[in-house]
Design a protein around this nucleic acid. Structure first.
Lengths: 244, 244
DNA sequence: CGAAACGTTGAATGGTTTCAACAAGAGTGG
DNA sequence: CCACTCTTGTTGAAACCATTCAACGTTTCG
């Protein structure tokens, strides 16, 4: 019995390996312990220890780190199909916090569940490690952007990457995607001030490249944007996938 | 027969789990395929595919990414005991390059070697994944630093982190450590210009905190530096280890 | 209706970069 | 052995990108 509707995680991992019926079943069974989190209440707090991991099935989350001076840096956003807190399974301290951006549905995954998967279904284990490697590659790309790219290119790259990620789970296309982030989220993610984010977005809009408005990202000139950002999604390793 | 001198990797992983004789043997056997790399020749080139991973046993390496405008961003430095290119085992493209900073000795690890370790010695596998998680946590911390910390704090944090890492493999203490990096390396790592790195180092020196000179980092007022950087090495997860 | 969250714009400030120049040491070839 | 170059470090001055401060508009929501 195959589930009527595959989870976003299944959909994502299938872009990497073709999984058997049995393996698909294992993956879906990881989604048993469903949890819900409302906007405004953090899922894990910085400094807490020994947390479970989650698989995000609905909604958007960001993982961030607070600075002593009150500023925060968003490390990554999680969209459906993404793991959440996978790293804290092995490290003794969770090094950052998770905030739901919209109401969220996630499946709790215990360390013991993961161990069992790793021992009994190595191909699924490999697929999960692939997803983890891909997440890490995104963080690296993010770091490069903050360290060495100007604000406009940084923004362009970010919007394109998000589009590629969403396309992989069927939530976006070459034309654009729905995006619940505020300009404050973008600022905290890109290492900019909210004021500057506003200016950069205006500039990109006026150049006829992208529009970010009312929770929707519209690529007006995707090719131009790709050129500006020198965007090459190879690091996402979604070779034959929907977007270039 | 236990090897007379444990590898730096063994030393590092032992900070996480106590390994049995058998497990230690497995770890040492991963070091069989020894390779040498001289300064100036890259180990892996950006964009190359399907590379093996390496365990660094002697020397320093940096992993970096080149921008189209010629600038580069150093993502991380590898010191003895660190893995190198572990991520590219699963991803189809190596997303960045490795440059030896001094002459380097490393052990080549094939994907098949790793698979075997994972299947037969799960505790060693866990320890390796721990190290990988820790590396990722360092990249995250690095990202936060570039995104949200001023140049002086960024530098302070960087020098302290490097000290903690080196102490774990017996190459540094609370007083300081030998460090072959140039100011250009620091600049490319911290997202600054070399000129500014010079100024920041001078400032830290004049404030009586650290001295970086002639390939040696000396902590003059480590407590003061820790306070300036708000340095909490919890994310390194070396709980009971040598440095605070 | 008032408050709160988000978006928008201008002006002043400032941290960092860029440009330029020079010093010191290491290595190289004539 | 000396001149030469290359790498690394150092410092000043000007230019610039992004931040901060401040004000205001809009929408949502209780």
């Amino acid at each position: 019995m195959t589930p009527a509707k595959p989870s976003p995680l299944t959909r994502k991992l299938s872009a990497f390996v073709a999984l058997s019926e049995v393996e698909l079943g294992v993956l879906e069974r990881l989604h048993q312990r469903r949890k819900f989190f409302g906007v405004g209440r953090d899922i894990v707090h910085q400094g807490q220890s020994a947390q479970a991991a989650y698989i995000l099935s609905k909604g958007w989350v960001c993982s961030y780190k607070l600075q002593p001076d009150g500023t925060r840096q968003i490390v990554d956003f999680q969209v459906p199909g993404d793991f959440l807190g996978l790293r804290s399974v092995l490290l003794r301290t969770s090094d950052h916090s998770f905030e739901p951006i919209v109401d969220v549905e996630a499946a709790e995954v215990l360390t013991s569940d993961l161990l069992e998967v790793f021992v009994h279904t190595p191909r699924v284990a490999t697929a999960i490690l692939w997803a983890a490697s891909r997440d890490e590659a995104m963080v690296v790309e993010h770091l490069v952007g903050i360290g060495r790219r100007g604000a406009d290119i940084r923004m362009a790259h970010f919007l394109l990457e998000l589009g590629s990620r969403l396309a992989l789970v069927g939530m976006g296309s070459k034309e654009g995607y729905d995006c619940p982030l505020t300009q404050y989220h973008l600022a905290d993610a890109l290492g900019l001030s909210a004021v500057h984010v506003n200016r950069v977005l205006r500039q990109l809009r006026e150049r006829g490249l992208v529009t970010f408005r009312d929770g929707h990202v519209t690529f007006q000139d995707r090719a131009g944007l790709v050129e500006l950002a020198d965007y090459d999604p190879a690091y996402l390793d979604q070779a034959g996938a929907l977007l270039k």
